[in-house]
Computed example of a mutant assay.
Amino acid sequence: MSTLILIPARMASTRLPGKPLADIAGVPMIVHVARRAAHAGLGRVVVATDTESVAEAVRAHGFEAVMTRVGHESGSDRIFEALATLDPGRKVETIVNVQGDLPTIDPDIINAALRPFADATVDIATLGIEIVRDEEKTNPNVVKIVGSPLSETRLRALYFTRATAPWGEGPLYHHIGLYAYRRSALERFVALKPSPLERREKLEQLRALEAGMRIDAEIVQSAPFGVDTPDDLERARTLLST
């Protein structure tokens, strides 16, 4: 299938303003993400941004960038606009949304997100990892996947929650917010209005589940490190300077 990797990037982060252009080992963070996405070998990689300076930095390092409008409420909306601009002929079948604040992401993780599409009934594919630290099981910032096991490495998602779930003995899974969409699923998703559970949990993916769309999660062994705070940025600099 024809695959397009899109990396949404905006400068208006509340906790770390300007983070796409934050210097890490002499290179803007967004360029590190683009490089790792390219190493996944899935196809075309494009950064979708509403800021010209981000686009210029990306292009200066040999990658593509596309301008999108300011004011998108989510990365999904931004990548949908970018898709329409980049592929008016509708040749792309699969879109992978890689967050722009994952400068150390393993390219194999990006590949893993496409594995659930071996089942033609899957609309959206994502990733999860087993939670091993007790404090993360009760942390509302660690989103949990409640799912039905399909194999040792895959769940069919039934719900996503900030609560500690499911109840009882057994593993809990942390949702990794990297998504792959079939084109028709992305088109349907962005046309939907925010749903009641989405508003309550503040989790966009619940909109798809409430609309009857199927989301499967591939279970991986390592989670990508996201940069959200100045401390995270310093850690990324340490990791990528060695």
Results as ranks from 00 to 15, higher is better:
P107M: 11
S53D: 14
V46S: 02
E73T: 08
M67A: 12
I30G: 04
A40M: 09
D50R: 07
G26W: 15
A22W: 02
G89C: 10
R90I: 04
M29V: 08
G43A: 02
T51V: 10
G89Q: 15
D108Y: 00
F63Q: 00
S13H: 10
V31R: 03
D50V: 06
L114S: 12
S74Y: 12
A82T: 01
I95Q: 07
A38S: 14
H72D: 13
P107N: 08
R36Y: 02
H61F: 05
L114T: 15
E81W: 02
V33L: 01
Q99V: 12
K91H: 10
I105V: 08
A12Y: 05
G100D: 11
V46D: 06
G18Q: 12
A55Q: 12
L83Q: 12
N111H: 03
T68Q: 10
L102K: 06
V58I: 04
T94G: 03
G26L: 14
H72P: 12
L102T: 05
D23I: 09
I30Y: 04
R115F: 09
G41F: 08
R15G: 15
P88Y: 06
A65H: 00
R36P: 01
L21A: 14
S76C: 09
K19P: 00
V47R: 00
E52Y: 05
H39I: 02
I79H: 07
R10T: 15
R59G: 00
R69D: 15
